[in-house]
Design a protein around this nucleic acid. Structure first.
Lengths: 228, 228
DNA sequence: ATCTCCGGTGATCACTCGATAAACTGATCC
DNA sequence: GGATCAGTTTATCGAGTGATCACCGGAGAT
């Protein structure tokens, strides 16, 4: 890359990175390794990916578990950098458009082989961070979506959605999520146009929302407003 | 249990089972073990669950991998014993009722901690049997559902559904599937009434089906239909 | 009673795993 | 140029893995 030392011998492996660089390189490559092999992936295989020896890992992490925790942190916090609060709640734009854009961006972030596999592996281990993430999806995404849907439909906006409504949103959300699982975990053929898949799923969800909402609530209601 | 030998000393471990019994006991307990620990679960832990010693496993299976294959076979074939062909295609009953009953029975079969975990673990390994199962769901369930939906809607029934329609069915199916994942893998709180979840998901799917079906022909976007 | 068959055990091998301690090496400071 | 510090390696440990072998012992057949 950079040839700041032109007379330097070309070494197959450049060693002696700075501590911070080496540490983050461990995390990066560990994410790749664990995504493929699961957390049973060995520390020696990891070191081989870096071109270093295995004990070096323990200069940077007290144990393999600590490395794994670091991988969790990185993976689980990655999709949070989107800033969906304002995206979902910006009522100056049509709800349909907001939802479409949100899910396109959100799935761009999490529909990678790496992310999905780490997520499922950690989910199977039943870790707290996984439950935390699920709770965050519920509070920060689904609850917000439901609130906007109720507002759009002219229904009373309650602070917390009913269990049935929430389940409705979960099934919708899970259906989209499972698209990524089929594509990147199962390697199964899917509809290539992800945006259309989201659009179709949204059509169905929005069309059916009121129908369920009126059953769960006591109120009768007004027809859905037409999108622009 | 049975006291056919009343004078026999009560032994904590009754040994010497018949070959067939022992073999199937290995598969059963291995399924439980692998569901919890993943396929990294050890042969010694398995033997402990049976109350026997570890080398005994190799009397019945040439290798651990062969045991695992047997576990796959059992788990993947389990939900197939339902016989959904006639259930889904019996046009003497309303489609809505057929779908509701099918998904209640189907999810009764696969929504167990054991089944879902083995399924996800094997899916992460990318085995052929997993792709086979996904293909079977597509051909035997989703394609059949779509055919019945088109018939119900008075649309031409084609032999193979369009990619967009199929994706629609997948998102619907995946949404229901993900309910099981949330409940039994993530141990997350879900709507307890599974039948209502299915019913709500069906309402949405059926309400939105026609709309997508007609859009897949020509891509014109039309306002959302008002529900009754 | 004795023989024979076969389910089951004890001992062990080669290997891999995560982890530790000590030695090595290259860059930086005085 | 020598001391020093930090990044890296070599050697190794103890525990655990899948797998193999010779052997044991109880139940049924003769």
């Amino acid at each position: 890359m950079n040839r700041k030392a032109p007379n330097r011998r070309t070494r197959a492996k450049q060693k002696r990175l700075s501590a911070d660089d080496r540490r983050s390189e461990f995390v990066t490559k560990a994410t790749e390794l664990f995504a493929e092999e699961g957390f049973a992936g060995g520390t020696r295989a990891l070191a081989r990916k870096l071109g270093v020896t295995q004990p070096l890992l323990y200069r940077y992490f007290p144990s393999k578990d600590d490395l794994i925790k670091e991988v969790y942190r990185k993976v689980y916090l990655e999709p949070l950098e989107i800033g969906w609060e304002k995206l979902l709640s910006d009522r100056s734009r049509p709800l349909r458009v907001r939802l479409q854009e949100f899910y396109e961006i959100y799935t761009d972030a999490i529909f990678t082989r790496k992310w999905l596999r780490i997520y499922l592996y950690s989910g199977l281990k039943g870790l707290d961070i996984n439950r935390w993430y699920v709770g965050m999806v519920k509070d920060k995404i689904l609850t917000r979506i439901l609130r906007e849907c109720r507002h759009e439909a002219g229904l009373a906006v309650q602070s917390r959605p009913s269990a049935a409504e929430l389940e409705l949103a979960w099934v919708f959300h899970g259906g989209i999520f499972y698209y990524g699982v089929r594509k990147y975990i199962y390697d199964a053929p899917v509809l290539e146009d992800k945006a259309q898949m989201i659009s179709d799923a949204l059509d169905i969800f929005l069309a059916g929302f009121e129908k369920i909402a009126e059953n769960s609530a006591d109120r009768r209601r007004v027809p859905i407003k037409v999108i622009g």
